[in-house]
């Protein structure tokens, strides 16, 4: 059973993605595809709000490595917010957070991106 879902909202040129549930199977690829589509449309500021993410395993981590890779290829800005410590630790360990901006909450990320070209 796929326990992953996500919602997307936009504010001007900023996209906010809220993954929900377990990021532990190929169902999470939709997050990767969604980011790529936004980048293709020329949107270069993405916030991923982790407040509703319960669990991330190696498959989920793989999805985020792809999202980060695409961010780099499209010279875009990716922000992570509301991360639980356990998820932050895994992302730090995998080098993912070296390539993204991490904020305590979504508002901080939006304020940062507003001032970013």
């Amino acid at each position: 059973m796929n326990n992953f879902s996500m919602s997307v909202k936009s504010a001007n040129d900023i996209i906010v993605i809220m993954p929900n549930g377990y990021v532990n199977d190929l169902g999470a690829e939709k997050l990767e595809r969604a980011c790529e589509q936004f980048f293709d449309k020329g949107l270069k500021k993405i916030v991923i709000n982790f407040s509703d993410v319960q669990f991330i395993n190696s498959i989920g981590a793989s999805v985020f490595t792809s999202v980060v890779q695409k961010t780099l290829e499209y010279s875009s800005v990716l922000c992570f917010t509301n991360m639980k410590k356990i998820h932050r630790d895994v992302f730090d360990m995998l080098g993912i957070t070296k390539h993204v901006r991490v904020f305590k909450d979504e508002r901080d990320a939006l304020n940062f991106l507003k001032d970013t070209e």
């Binding site: 190696s58 498959i59 981590a61 793989s62 490595t65 995998l94």
Partner: peptide, 9 residues
């Protein structure tokens, strides 16, 4: 995906 997630590839 498991392998690439483990080694951030």
């Amino acid at each position: 995906y498991v392998v690439t997630g483990m080694f951030s590839v």
